[in-house]
Design a protein around this nucleic acid. Structure first.
Length: 745
DNA sequence: TGGTAAGTAACCAAG
DNA sequence: TTACTTACCA
């Protein structure tokens, strides 16, 4: 194995005892090091595979690592516990959840379920939904859990802050509701496991004794709860090896604490630190671009990636008129390269900052018949019909799952309306029972009319029948039986719309996934299937051996590599996002820059960066300038194609950029938005005659929306003038002359 | 009670 | 743009 590893990699592999921090730059072969290290422990150090653990963030990464260890070690490798944080915790909790007051068949609630619960909580507590928005509250609660803060911690912290006190009430009620439903959300999985460990020495000791060598991948993205989970497990043997790159920390918004990696040596005294700085992935030019961007960040461990790879081509920079033209360019380029035999579809990845950008790209790829796959966005498992069917299955194994009951009690329509359900919910609540049990004794509920009771009986009897079926049937048959008994498919078929047809296809697709699971699993159970489904990540659906272009957000692309990468929408306001530009917290912009770094370092051979002058967002046209991150790349390694703004002339844009940003900030909390004028909205090309403007710097002008102001600057673009005006009312703004329709006074 | 029309908030990223 | 909520009618 020695020849396959460089010196530093070997050091990392061979340092098996005690804490080890591997600072692994992008493309420096960290997965290789991790897998070789596990193999080394087994083969050279004679450690039982059973005593080794490796934790990743996604199932995909876990599978990959498992396969690679398998091929290195062969026998016994399947005994290594390779898993994601979430599945590891679920596995532990399934065994011991009774110790923290949960039944072992607890459900796992996703974002959608969380929303529903939160909505009820806010309503039930009579809080003003204008102030206590469910999304915001979910984020808060998630934040608390990631920091391992309990309800009483939050309450203590609130002291006299009455809003925080209300938030504590929300948190409390939310938790109680989950508990009543015998359900946990994603964050609970980690927090509850930590809680379990802390309150049950025997349980912790059990795992500590077993897991003598622990590895954590993507360590820079761990949050406080995950840190504590790992720390507890490693406390006894202290053989903890973490791999991460502070420059690739991009999940602060979901609680990742970069200090976990920056302070590793403090938390684990005597830790050995190994830096992997040789990049095996990208060309020198791509690496130089990445390095020159990330060097603008202040809070980072200093390191510089280098490479022995070829110089490679310059980075292409392309300016498009709008998002569609950008997508067209991408599609054309891909098709051309494939037609010329210079690449195949699978070589390409199209990356973007936000999922919304995928639509235009998808449209153009579709038009050219280019095979593609979009990762993320609306996930298969979030589709209504899938959630409906899953809710039936969930109810069969967990009668406490009120949310599931409410979801499907009237789907398909059984004439059980809101009022009926509400009466039953109240009945259940008063008696402290779950909704399904209340339905079972519907005839006891005084508020219900006999007709309603009868309909409910029909529903519960059906569920009971299905429960019996569950005992005797295979999963496949049970699934079919559910569709049949409930009339779910029949109902969709009756619709006779394309949409309904699509839904039926999806339901069938879920069936084939179930069949696949049943065929593969050792001891298939409905519960385990539901669990797998709940913990699936978008990226897990990416299959490497298919010839298609992949589209995904930069976040999803972390950890992946592609021969050729398109990085789209590199515009200020989009990437970096508007919020991070306006934020007082400099760290936010640094996180965006790390994200840009991640994006650039995904590319192996060729990188094309593109941006658009205007972009449709929420039905409005927005005007942006090229991303500041693009300007951080040395012009000498950039090949500007079709670039008409000043960026082409060596990036002298920073002053304007500042004016631009400040003008927006003053104006409103939104970027400059110009409603498309009717006469130009349809035409793809509208040439702007430059002679149109009759004002000059210093003149007083009037704008239809912003009122009167003084012209501060006029910048000459190829197709249009960019005019900066200091308006009396709203401050300085920069705009395209043709759209501004400024009138000289 | 359920369906449709009008109205409105949202997109920043994910397990 | 779209998904989702509220209002209103059959």
């Amino acid at each position: 194995m020695d020849k396959l590893l460089n010196d530093m990699q070997q050091v990392a592999v061979r340092h098996t005892e005690g804490p080890l921090l591997i600072l692994a730059g992008a493309g420096s072969g960290k997965t290789r090091v991790l897998t070789y290290r596990v193999a080394y422990l087994i083969k050279e150090k004679n450690i039982e595979p059973y005593n080794i653990m490796a934790i990743t963030f996604t199932n995909k990464a876990a599978d990959e690592m498992r396969n690679r260890v398998d091929s290195l070690v062969g026998h016994g490798a399947d005994q290594v516990w390779v898993s994601t944080f979430h599945s590891a915790c679920v596995r532990i909790l399934r065994r011991y959840s009774d110790r923290i007051g949960y039944a072992n068949d607890f459900a796992i609630y996703d974002t959608d379920d969380q929303k529903k619960i939160m909505k009820k909580v806010i309503k039930h507590l009579n809080l003003n939904p204008k102030i206590f928005k469910e999304k915001g509250m979910i984020a808060k609660v998630s934040d608390f859990k990631n920091k391992l803060m309990t309800v009483s911690d939050v309450r203590d912290m609130a002291s006299t802050d009455f809003k925080m006190k209300d938030i504590a009430r929300v948190y409390e009620e939310y938790q109680e509701t989950l508990m009543r439903n015998n359900a946990m959300d994603f964050d609970d999985l980690i927090m509850n496991t930590v809680k379990l460990f802390k309150n049950n020495e025997d349980v912790l000791a059990n795992y500590q004794n077993r897991l003598q060598y622990i590895h954590v991948d993507e360590y820079q993205d761990t949050n406080a709860a995950q840190f504590e989970f790992v720390r507890l497990l490693a406390e006894k043997h202290k053989n903890i090896c973490v791999v991460g790159d502070d420059d690739q920390s991009i999940y602060k918004f979901r609680g990742a604490d970069i200090q976990n990696i920056l302070q590793f040596e403090k938390y684990f005294p005597g830790a050995k630190v190994v830096k992997l700085e040789q990049n095996y992935r990208s060309t020198k030019k791509i690496l130089e671009a990445a390095n020159s961007v990330i060097h603008n960040n202040v809070g980072r461990k200093d390191k510089t990636l280098w490479s022995d790879n070829a110089d490679g081509a310059k980075i292409d920079l392309y300016q498009a008129e709008d998002g569609y033209a950008e997508a067209q360019m991408v599609a054309d380029t891909i098709q051309e390269e494939v037609d010329f035999g210079r690449a195949s579809y699978e070589d390409f990845a199209i990356l973007y900052r936000t999922n919304a950008q995928s639509r235009a790209l998808e449209e153009k790829l579709l038009m050219k018949n280019i095979p593609y796959k979009i990762i993320g966005g609306t996930n298969f498992y979030q589709r209504r019909e899938i959630k409906d069917v899953l809710a039936y299955l969930r109810l069969l194994i967990n009668p406490s799952d009120d949310l599931a009951v409410e979801r499907i009690i009237n789907v398909p329509r059984r004439g059980i309306g809101n009022t009926t359900v509400e009466n039953a919910v109240n009945y259940a609540r008063v008696r402290g029972m779950n909704l399904y049990d209340a339905l079972l004794e519907a005839d006891q509920i005084n508020e219900l009319k006999p007709a309603a009771v009868k309909k409910i009986k029909g529903f519960t009897e059906m569920i009971e029948r299905l429960k019996n079926d569950m005992k005797i049937m295979s999963l496949e048959d049970l699934y079919k039986q559910v569709l049949d008994e409930t009339g779910y498919i029949a109902d969709l078929e009756a619709e006779e719309t394309d949409e309904a047809e699509g839904r039926i296809e999806n339901v069938d697709e879920l069936l084939s996934k179930l069949v696949e699971y049943e065929g593969e699993a050792e001891d298939p159970t409905l519960g385990e299937f539901l669990e797998d489904v709940a913990l699936i990540a978008d990226i897990d659906n990416l299959e490497e051996d298919n010839d298609y272009v992949v589209l995904m957000t930069v976040h999803s692309a972390k950890g992946l590599e592609f021969p050729r990468v398109f990085l789209c929408g590199m515009e200020d306001g989009l990437f970096p996002g508007y919020m991070s530009i306006m934020s007082d917290d400099k760290e936010e912009l640094e996180e965006e820059r790390r994200l840009a770094y991640v994006a650039i370092t995904r590319a192996q051979n060729e990188l094309t960066i593109s941006y658009a002058k205007r972009r449709m967002l929420r039905g409005e046209t927005q005007y942006n300038i090229v991303s500041r991150f693009v300007e951080e790349i040395p012009p000498s390694i950039v090949n500007s194609k079709n670039v008409t703004d000043t960026v082409a002339a060596g990036y002298k844009r920073n002053i304007v950029r500042d004016t631009f940003a400040k003008a927006h900030a003053k104006m409103e909390k939104k970027p400059a938005v110009v409603k498309p004028k009717k006469d130009i909205a349809f035409g793809k090309e509208f040439t702007i005659t430059k002679a149109d403007i009759d004002y000059k710097v210093g003149d007083r002008v009037e704008h239809i929306k912003f009122g009167e102001g003084t012209v501060k600057a006029i910048e000459d673009g190829t197709k249009d003038y960019q005019v900066t005006v200091d308006f009396d009312e709203v401050g300085q703004k920069m705009m395209m002359a043709s759209f501004a329709k400024l009138k000289k006074l």
